Computed example of a mutant assay.
Amino acid sequence: MRWVSYRSTDGSSRCGVVRGDMIHAVGTNLLELLRTEGGLAAAATKEPTEVVPLATRHLLAPVPVPPAVRDFAAFERHISNAGKAAVGDGTVNPVWYEYPIFFFSNPAAIKGPHDEIPIAPGTQLWDYEVEVAAVIARDCSNLDARTAEECIAGYLLYCDWSARDISTSEMKFVFGPSKSKDASTTLGPFLVTPDELEPYRSGKGFALRMDGYVNDEHYGGGSWDEIHWSFGEMLAHASRGTTLRAGDILASGPVGTGCIQELAGRRPYLAAGDTVRIEVQELGAISVRVTSHEPS
């Protein structure tokens, strides 16, 4: 199944399952559906409150305000490329191979798949990231990596908009990224249930393309099955000694060459007026316009 959240004609937010080119609305909030008995599977059997054309509705992020957002760095090629671009050395720190590392991002910064993206204040090096993310189906803790994917409600496309010059400064201290990452995060357009992706299972991921474009020019990308840390391994690590809640977002980090930072001067960073399109096979695409910084 593919699920969406959208703005109805009366201005209210609704969510529903996509059947063909129509949305069958069965609720007002996808997070609430995840928390009800039976989750999305049960919700899909409800009589729709409205049936509307997908093409005519303004899509929101499938989970507009997730309880928590964790962003990992699960693709080895990205880590190596980023090191080469930053210091001329693509050697991956051995710690990266010990366990999947993540940082917490900002749930209040979530944007929909076609919302404009203002450049964060104070940056000259504004970047996108081609990522995939899992949405947690139910509260869970201390998961086993071998079975943790049973707690995934679905997958979606994730773009972590990044201020690279600010990040360079922040990463000199042990806390890691903060203001370089909390201005905007784009989710969507669909939450795709795991059964839809199972035919593409390959390695620790899926044999699905992940690509980024700026002004219709292909900048880079790769395949989901290049991933070093599986989502089961990421969930197991994140849930150790704590609780993942229904609706939590866990993102993969960018695929190799899935951001401008990795291209080492071969492509310019983003400017106001640029259009960015990020595509992941079976998950759809986001397409957004970059704008100048919004004054506070």
Rank of each mutant, 00 (worst) to 15 (best):
I119M: 11
G88T: 10
V17P: 00
P113W: 04
A41E: 15
D71V: 14
L54W: 11
C15T: 12
P64E: 08
T147A: 05
A41Q: 14
E129D: 07
A61C: 06
T123G: 08
L60T: 06
D21Y: 05
A86G: 13
N81K: 09
M22V: 05
D21N: 14
V130R: 02
L54H: 06
M22K: 10
R77W: 11
G27V: 11
C151E: 15
P121Q: 14
V135C: 01
A55M: 06
R77D: 15
V26N: 05
A41L: 12
P66Y: 12
D115V: 04
L125T: 13
L125G: 05
N81H: 06
T123Q: 06
A108N: 14
A73K: 02
A108L: 14
L125S: 14
I119A: 05
F102W: 13
E129F: 02
T45Y: 00
P121A: 14
F75Y: 14
V63R: 00
V63C: 03
Y128G: 05
A153H: 09
A108T: 12
R70N: 08
F103I: 12
L34M: 06
P100A: 00
Y99C: 03
A120I: 04
A44T: 11
G27K: 08
D144P: 00
E98G: 04
F104H: 11
H58T: 13
E50I: 07
I101E: 08
I101H: 09
R146G: 06
E37V: 00
D127V: 01
V51C: 12
V132Q: 12
P107V: 02
K46P: 00
